[in-house]
Amino acid sequence: MKTQTIKNMKKYLLLPAIALAFVSCSDDDVPVANDVTLEFNNTFKGQTIVLGDATSAEATTNTSVEDQVHHFSELKYVISNIILVKEDGTEIPYNVNDLDEGAIVIDQSKEETLEYVLNDIPTDDYTQIIFGLGVRSDLNTLDEVSNPEFYAEAGANDTQMHWEWGTGYRFTKIEGFYDTDNKTLSFHSGSTVEGTVDDESSYIPGFDAYREITLDLPSMAKVGEHSPKIVIEADFDALLSGKTNTILLDDKNATPSVHTSVSMSKYVDNIGGDGTNDVTGMFSISKVEN
């Protein structure tokens, strides 16, 4: 009930903004939604992934550079901190400090999560999109009081994107199988950093799996004039065969107990980029539909 009230209040607060938006484009008297839809297409080398159990005949299989056949039964990741960049370089952040209004758990098993609509984007032409894979450290505290909706969405029994002991969110959760005998492949990423580096009394020297992705749009997204759709491909071939690392799965790195050490960073750099030389990771823009 409380959540609902807060949500309604937010809506009322948004009203003046929406009214303003209407006023500003009243020239042609045609109100436009100023929506931008992000569509996530999770693939293996361009082929949309079908999930499946160990022995599933329908599941999409992939073969890594190391010649290991693998497929997934579960595929989830968090997108947050979305920023659209105008032609002149101006950045329009989209609720970047509010996980309820600006973040989503993409879940390959739930079609409705594969599209995310950004509302009230200022009328303009956009040439670039920036977003985070995971949750920024300062927001990654499992603060249910501030972000009850995202907290609930991420923590649902069939989602399990809370990382309780690290009091943060899971950024990626992949379950699957590899090799012909379908050995377990399980990859979870998240951040264990806490506190301030300069303050030894608070600092937890953890690993931060958050990655910022920057993608140029192949053609401009014309917001206002149209309600564009940006189709983003996440090619999970990169998990094992990335730009940064080539990973050979074995009993030492295919499950969480050991990938929490050095190998987690290899997977993370593959799918999210290393943040310096590679700022796209597994992501690319397939097309922009205006």
Binding site: L142, E144, V145, P148, Y151, G155, H162, E164, W165, G166, T167, T192, E194, G195, S201, S202, Y203, I204
Partner: peptide, 24 residues
């Protein structure tokens, strides 16, 4: 995993195999 004790109570409250609740 914890250096500031005030950050600890939430962990057992929300952990599935401990109290499995939520702060709200």
């Amino acid at each position: 995993n914890i250096r500031v004790l005030e950050n600890q109570p939430l962990v057992p409250i929300i952990t599935h195999f401990e109290m499995d609740s939520s702060i709200l």
